[in-house]
């Protein structure tokens, strides 16, 4: 039975007709055309689909679009500033070569931003544990961990200086 779902995605209100069985990730990819959020598994483990829902990192493959009715969603496309300036975490992933094939990257970055927001002073161990819900097959995690630590520092340093679109959206 098709139904209409309305939510805020990357700061914009969107409304689409969907089947009730539509997952949030498919809503984002197929209905809104935001294909940056990926699907890497079907058991809620790989984290390629991580987005922020009302400011919390969640796996968009494990929630129905109708469950996100009225919510605010931020995807990887909504992370950089309006002028294209990369979010400090995105910039850190580039600087520290925290990505190779790029497929896990959107979920990894969204998880990392959430992790850094909640923990002002992360340790390597906390980063490794904090990313247990995101699988990367390319990097061996070494450079992802470096990137997240650097990105978290940059977020700390930049806090108060500017409000990334993502923060405002949350």
């Amino acid at each position: 039975m098709p139904t209409t779902v309305t939510m805020t995605v990357n700061g914009k209100t969107v409304s689409r007709e969907v089947e009730e069985r539509t997952l949030l990730v498919n809503f984002l990819r197929d209905k809104i055309g935001l294909t940056g959020t990926h699907v890497g598994c079907d058991t809620s483990q790989c984290g390629a689909c991580v987005v922020h829902l009302d400011g919390n990192a969640i796996k968009s493959c494990s929630i129905l679009a109708v469950q996100a009715e009225g919510a605010s969603v931020t995807t990887i496309e909504g992370l950089a500033a309006a002028d294209g300036t990369l979010h400090p975490m995105q910039a850190a992933f580039k600087e520290h070569h925290g990505l190779q094939c790029g497929y896990c990257t959107p979920g990894m970055v969204m998880s990392a931003v959430d992790l850094a927001k909640r923990n002002p002073s992360l340790t390597e161990q906390q980063v490794r544990q904090g990313l247990e819900g995101n699988i990367c097959r390319c990097t061996g995690y070494h450079n992802i961990v470096k990137a997240v630590l650097a990105g978290a520092d940059a977020m700390q340093a930049g806090a108060g200086e500017r409000q990334p679109a993502e923060m405002a959206a949350d």
Binding site: R29, G36, H38, F93, K94, E95, L99, G102
Partner: peptide, 19 residues
């Protein structure tokens, strides 16, 4: 050299087959 391809991958603009 920092990677050229990262700009699209980091912003969700990669173009994979399912996209």
């Amino acid at each position: 050299v920092r990677r050229v391809e990262d700009a699209r991958f980091l912003t969700g603009r990669g173009n994979y087959v399912d996209d």
